[in-house]
């Protein structure tokens, strides 16, 4: 089995979010970038397939040279090779078109992406990619088993979950649950050394229309101070929620 794990390169979850250039650009100053958490679950599941069932695992990112440390980290965790498509990741559709080209080029049968990136939270790329390459698609995936050409997956739905069966080629949008938190791997020294020897291929982008564009950013309005209520006066809390906030 040939697996491609799509990696988006996102600000660490504790990052303070600021903007520059008249609020048109994300301020990367002092921001630490990481593998998107949903992709880290996917990568870990891919390593399981590699070790238990035999598979080659490549990782891909669409982005500028600044994303290479993130790809190297994925190699240090155990991926066999990495591909960076040298184009800015501005629009989900454009990213999906670049990834579709990577998948066709490399002949992957299973593509593991994340449910969403935690930066723009588009939740777009995996579904678009699946449709562009004519693969089956399951998102919000919390379990995945592959047996030959057949796959079984569990998808989280509002208020429950659903078990589905499908076939390769397949794209999934993974999330927490795909593997246990305790299965996540921190790259060790050996992994980091080996990653330096592994191939990181840079592909030039194919031409793709940009369908959506970011105009500007805005921060939420600052919040007023919290109103404290004494634990001995919970009637007041109920009155506030009823009369002031009007939520009960």
């Amino acid at each position: 089995m040939k697996i491609l794990v799509c990696i988006s390169h996102v600000p660490d979850t504790t990052s303070k979010i600021n903007f520059t250039d008249n609020d048109t650009k994300f301020d990367t100053n002092g921001v630490q970038f990481v593998i998107n958490p949903n992709d880290e679950f996917g990568l870990t599941r891919a390593m399981w397939f590699k070790e238990k069932q035999g598979a080659t695992v490549d990782v891909a990112n669409v982005g500028g040279p600044e994303t290479e440390p993130t790809l190297r980290k994925a190699l240090a965790i155990g991926a066999d090779g990495a591909i960076r498509v040298n184009a800015p990741a501005t629009d989900g559709y454009a990213v999906a078109k670049q990834l579709a080209n990577v998948v066709k080029d490399g002949g992957y049968d299973l593509v593991i992406a994340g449910r969403e990136s935690i930066d723009y939270n588009g939740g777009m790329v995996p579904g678009m990619l699946a449709e562009l390459i004519g693969a089956n698609f399951v998102t919000n995936c919390i379990s995945l088993e592959v047996d030959g050409n057949n796959a079984k997956a569990v998808r989280e739905i509002d208020g429950g979950k659903e078990t589905v069966s499908t076939t390769l080629p397949l794209v999934i949008g993974g999330q927490k649950g795909l593997v246990e938190e305790s299965d996540l791997r921190i790259p060790n020294m050996r992994g980091i050394m080996m990653a330096r020897q592994k191939p990181l291929k840079v592909m030039e982008p194919i031409s793709a229309n940009v369908e959506t564009s970011s105009v500007k950013f805005e921060k939420p309005a600052p919040k007023g101070a919290v109103k404290l209520v004494s634990p001995d006066n919970l009637d007041e809390l109920i009155a506030l929620l009823h009369n002031e906030a009007k939520v009960i």
């Binding site: 723009y120 105009v215 950013f217 805005e218």
Partner: peptide, 20 residues
């Protein structure tokens, strides 16, 4: 055609225009 959407997991908003 421009809409306001949440970004950075609710830490900010983004105005996005759709050109198609």
């Amino acid at each position: 055609f421009t809409v306001k959407r949440t970004a950075f997991t609710n830490k900010a908003f983004n105005f996005t225009s759709i050109g198609t």
